[in-house]
Design a protein around this nucleic acid. Sequence first.
DNA 1: AACCGAGTCAACCGCTCGCTG
DNA 2: TCAGCGAGCGGTTGACTCGGT
Length: 333
Amino acid sequence: MQGAKPATSSSNGSVGSSSSRSSGRRSSRRDEGGMAIRKGTWMAEEDEILMEYVRKHGPRDWSSIRSKGLLARTGKSCRLRWVNKLKPDLKTGCKFSPEEERIVLDLQAKFGNKWARIATYLPGRTDNDVKNFWSTRQKRLARISRSSLPPRSSKNDKELTAVSSYEAPPIMEDTCIDLVLLEEGSSNVQCCNAFYVDNQYAMSMAPSPCNLGLGTALPPLLEPATEEELLRLPNTSIPPQPQPQPPQQQHIGPLPQPPLDYLDHFTGEEICFPEDFGCQESSPCMQFLYDGPPFAREDEQPPAPDSLFDDLPSDLFDYLEPPPPPPPTSSAS
DNA sequence: AACCGAGTCAACCGCTCGCTG
DNA sequence: TCAGCGAGCGGTTGACTCGGT
């Protein structure tokens, strides 16, 4: 990855670049009481004062920090600084691991944009971290989907093709990558995640509800799995189903909760999914990019789902573990 | 070397919720 | 019951770095 910004004044004690950085849009202003409210990047001295306050009083009564004249910051700002930067055990400057990414994807599909809630499943991560991770990912997917739409031709060729970052040079380290699966000859785009962990690729989501399908035309590193194997994945709420032979279709109605902003393009029309991808509202798990007519309608054959997972080695997903249990309700917001 | 796009991150704002008097 | 207030949350913005061209 790139773009890691050097630590701010709080962690390296240098105020130089960060103070100039804040000089533009953020500045101090005076409130009604006449006390100047400082905004912008925190200085090391301010951090020290804030930490000292928390040591003495605990992380509460944020507004009294200003009312006592300790800092010219709002309570909000103090709390934010503590939660996002000063709290102990934060994983600052540390990239999301593939496992963390998988958890975020799972939980975002489950909870929506409840970043604080999702962050409680990720020790050392803040809601801001999760939010930033997600928005970066969204931007990337949006860019990929925009740039990857194939020309409308060869209508009969329905093969799903992996494009996007998957075409990047081989990934050598544990990595989470996004896949955009295009239905050739149309503008249908599906999106999912694959992980490269321990020299193996694996898809991020179980064949649970709202899985619209995974691509077949993946590079050789990813071998297809049998549906039986995939059904052993964690967080899979659909029960094992009988051998789904010729793809049948199940009328499931509109998607319950559009998981992505991309669904702005969604027409709201009812879609049919193959029966073996049965959809349950309780655990939607796939991000669905849509920019055209419905993916599979009753009068149209969807890609054969059984061809999507065939032959994946049975241990392919063994490393995947269920997310940790939710923390005690007292800590959740 | 300069430029540009992508990615990362910090910190703001507006809103909601829950507590308290 | 209700208003006021503080805390918390989600969305957004913009500075900054880095890699590619």
